[in-house]
Design a protein around this nucleic acid. Sequence first.
DNA 1: CCGTAGGTTGGACTTCAGTCCGACATTGCC
DNA 2: GGCAATGTCGGACTGAAGTCCAACCTACGG
Lengths: 196, 196
Amino acid sequence: MSKKSERTRQKIIEAANRLFYHQGYHSTSFTDVVDASGVPRGNIYYYFKSKEEILTAALSYRISRIDHMLRAWSGQYRTPIERLNRFLEILPDSLDSLVRYGCPMGTLNAELGKNEPELQIKARAMFLLFEDWLTDQFAELGYAGRAREFARRLLARGQGISMITHVYQDRRFLMQETDLLARWVNKLARGEEQDI
Amino acid sequence: MSKKSERTRQKIIEAANRLFYHQGYHSTSFTDVVDASGVPRGNIYYYFKSKEEILTAALSYRISRIDHMLRAWSGQYRTPIERLNRFLEILPDSLDSLVRYGCPMGTLNAELGKNEPELQIKARAMFLLFEDWLTDQFAELGYAGRAREFARRLLARGQGISMITHVYQDRRFLMQETDLLARWVNKLARGEEQDI
DNA sequence: CCGTAGGTTGGACTTCAGTCCGACATTGCC
DNA sequence: GGCAATGTCGGACTGAAGTCCAACCTACGG
């Protein structure tokens, strides 16, 4: 039974996670989760004792997915510049959903940052994962001292691109700016540092 | 009577606007607006026939404020580079609220972009105002052909900085990255174009 | 083959959201 | 000074939100 039970739990988390991204946390009702997951009300409350707890679980789920993805990349690509370029491919890869819903990490943090400090801390963890991983890559590139600075800057620029892409629904902008970012990163990799 | 009436209306708009920024639109209840504005329920419904209409009015209010601000800057500063630098000062000037609530334009757009397409269009207008104004400045700098591109890029980078500042609650990051942005802009002004 | 633990079910409950309304006050005009 | 028009007020309404619960399955160990 533990097998089926685990599947039910997972169905709830994945449905909720999708809804929280597409509609936002506050705009997603319990009934929405019921409908989207196919799991009846009472049963959901068997697994999670509040809507907030569902969000916490959804965040853990996201975090573990990000973690796995980054570990996979670290195994899959040998050089830091390959890894950084892979990171940048997230943007074109997610083009459609970025246009429609914005960045899943950014929009959720923005929403939770206003009213739910404890939840926002958990949401921030997604950024920290990326930041640490990117920091490692820049460090490997030889920028040990400024690696974290570069990592955050890269994240910030990705967030800016995502936001403007979402606001304007402009695919071209995303492609263009991602190119530019890639150029910056690759110049850094070639040792042609520049501070802009 | 038209005078007092106008003041009541304005009290509602300003209170709601503040709440929408601090708490988000969906997390702000009608009662919140009642309490914050000091205007009783029924009276608010005399001026606005729905919560959504209050948001529309709040957006119009923001838009007109931005518009006035930009016009004032255009009058106050003679050179485009002075104006661009004034624009960049928004970030340190709003440091505290950016840390706490994020960018008012960005977070609102992110929220409305998910579920309320018509309202998001109105929210987008705030960005367009800035974009047009910035475009004018870059055009005056001699970058006629790429002025809009630069304007959007500047907006995007401002959004990225705001987002990361908010997520990490990191004041230092904002100051540092704003400096970098200013350096980029000022290099452009000196004709030292660079594409990163 | 029955008892118990684990899992499932949908309706009932409470609370609060947004909305509406009817009564009342105030103002400006004849 | 009276009568519209304009503005003020708070309670009542309706629906939906999140939550809880008591009854009900299902599987397995004794």
